[in-house]
Computed example of a mutant assay.
Amino acid sequence: MPLPPSRPRSGPRRRTLLASAAGTAAALLAACSTGSSPGRPAARPTPSADELALTRAAADSTGLAALHDAVLAAHPGLAARLTPLRDTALRHAEVLAERAGAKASPSRSAPSPSPSAPAPSVSASGAAAPSVSGPAVPREEKQALRMVADAERDLAGRRTRELSGLGGEPARLLASVAAAGAVHVYLLSDD
């Protein structure tokens, strides 16, 4: 017995409908997994503990460079000794911020105090008056170097203590920066 004649189909085929439904479902799942929905921007992910630690370390390095700047402004004669250490602190800040995923990192092109920069005023106690951008700097060069060495030592110690809470790569990076700080202490202390 012959088969009845088939009629031509009108409209989309079943395969086409299933494929488009699967594509729509995949798109919706992707949107849900990124935290965005139509008409609403994606939520920014919460930074991890490693990212927070590296961001904090970058800020600490920037602060350390600012301390170097304050001492250099008060004691231009220390430029040969402190400028390389300041530049290292700025480089550490850049790398730490980059690894933390920060959008803006400290400027490596921040100006070094020039020998012709005016020295900060000195108070009766022998310390330079604190400026808007920096701490009070002792009048004596040795005391100023000791202040920088103490700041480097404290920061290196704090970074070393933070290592146990970090993952592999961030811990290695912070350990390296802490070791560099310990070397800076040695270089500032050898009189």
Rank of each mutant, 00 (worst) to 15 (best):
A175D: 06
L54R: 01
P41F: 10
L72G: 04
D190Q: 13
P12K: 13
A79F: 07
A104G: 10
L29P: 00
S125P: 04
V177I: 05
V95A: 09
L29T: 09
V137A: 03
V122K: 00
G101P: 02
A100D: 03
A180T: 11
L187A: 15
A21C: 06
R44P: 06
P41M: 06
A26H: 06
S164L: 13
L155K: 14
A156D: 07
A100F: 07
R108L: 13
P5H: 14
V137P: 02
L187P: 12
R139G: 12
L155I: 04
A179R: 12
R153L: 03
A19F: 08
A19N: 10
A124D: 09
P130K: 05
G11T: 06
Q143D: 15
R172P: 02
R146E: 15
A25P: 07
P38V: 08
G63K: 06
H184M: 08
R139E: 15
G167R: 12
P111D: 14
A70Q: 04
R146A: 15
S164T: 10
S37L: 15
R158S: 11
P111G: 10
R7E: 11
A127I: 04
L29D: 00
L52S: 09
S121C: 13
S123K: 07
L18W: 10
P170H: 04
P41K: 02
G23Q: 04
P106T: 12
S189H: 06
A65C: 09
P135V: 14
L67Q: 07
E169H: 11
R9E: 15
A128Q: 01
A175E: 04
L173W: 08
A58H: 01
L173F: 00
S131F: 05
L155R: 15
P115R: 10
R153Y: 04
A93S: 08
L163V: 06
A93F: 05
A179P: 10
A79L: 08
V132Q: 09
P115N: 05
S189E: 11
A175G: 12
S20Y: 11
L96K: 02
E98K: 11
A80C: 06
A89Y: 03
S20Q: 14
R40W: 01
A171S: 12
A149Y: 03
H92E: 10
D87N: 01
S121F: 11
P5N: 11
P8A: 15
R86T: 00
A117D: 13
A124Y: 05
G35H: 01
S123D: 10
E169S: 14
S6Q: 10
S109C: 11
S48N: 01
G35W: 08
G167L: 13
T16C: 04
G63A: 03
R14C: 04
A31E: 07
A30W: 09
S10A: 14
S107A: 13
L174I: 02
R108F: 02
T83V: 10
T83E: 11
T55Q: 05
S37K: 06
R15I: 06
